Amino acid sequence: MSLPTFQQFEVDALAKGFDEVAPRVWDAAQTVDLHTHPFSVEALVVQGEMWLKVGDDTRHLLAGDTFALEYGTPHSERYGIEGATYWAARRHAVA
């Protein structure tokens, strides 16, 4: 499977109405406890592996996998022994 370049991911995300696109790099075996974000996100995992838990559902994500979360969705994250990198397209809530 061929992944897009970051530039292409960014262009596509901005065209879909996202207002921020950023690479996110996580350390090996890092965990992030239950939390929420003030934005919606669509992301593409480009390196490593991670586990994303939303409610009772846990997804194991590898390079090439995508995930999406709506604004304010409680979730937790765990990263693999080599860490992980994903590209995140964010759409911030409008007040």
Rank of each mutant, 00 (worst) to 15 (best):
S2A: 12
L3V: 02
P4D: 05
F6C: 09
Q7D: 12
Q7V: 13
Q8C: 11
Q8S: 15
F9P: 01
F9K: 01
E10R: 13
V11D: 11
D12V: 04
A13M: 05
L14M: 12
A15Y: 02
K16G: 10
D19C: 01
V21K: 01
P23I: 12
R24H: 14
R24E: 13
V25N: 15
W26E: 10
D27M: 08
A28I: 14
Q30L: 11
Q30M: 13
Q30R: 13
V32G: 13
D33L: 05
D33Y: 08
L34P: 03
H37E: 12
P38L: 01
P38I: 02
S40F: 03
S40D: 06
E42K: 12
E42T: 13
A43K: 03
A43W: 01
L44S: 07
L44Q: 03
V46A: 04
V46E: 01
G48V: 08
M50P: 01
M50Y: 05
W51G: 07
W51P: 02
K53N: 11
K53W: 05
K53I: 04
K53F: 01
V54N: 07
G55L: 08
G55H: 10
G55I: 13
D56M: 09
D57T: 14
D57M: 12
T58I: 12
R59K: 15
R59W: 13
R59A: 15
H60F: 15
L61Q: 04
L61K: 02
L62M: 15
A63M: 09
D65Q: 11
F67L: 08
F67P: 07
F67T: 02
A68D: 09
L69R: 00
L69F: 09
E70S: 10
T73V: 15
T73K: 06
P74L: 09
H75S: 10
H75W: 07
R78D: 08
Y79E: 04
I81Q: 14
E82T: 14
E82R: 10
T85F: 08
Y86A: 04
Y86Q: 07
W87C: 01
W87G: 02
A88W: 00
H92L: 02
H92S: 03
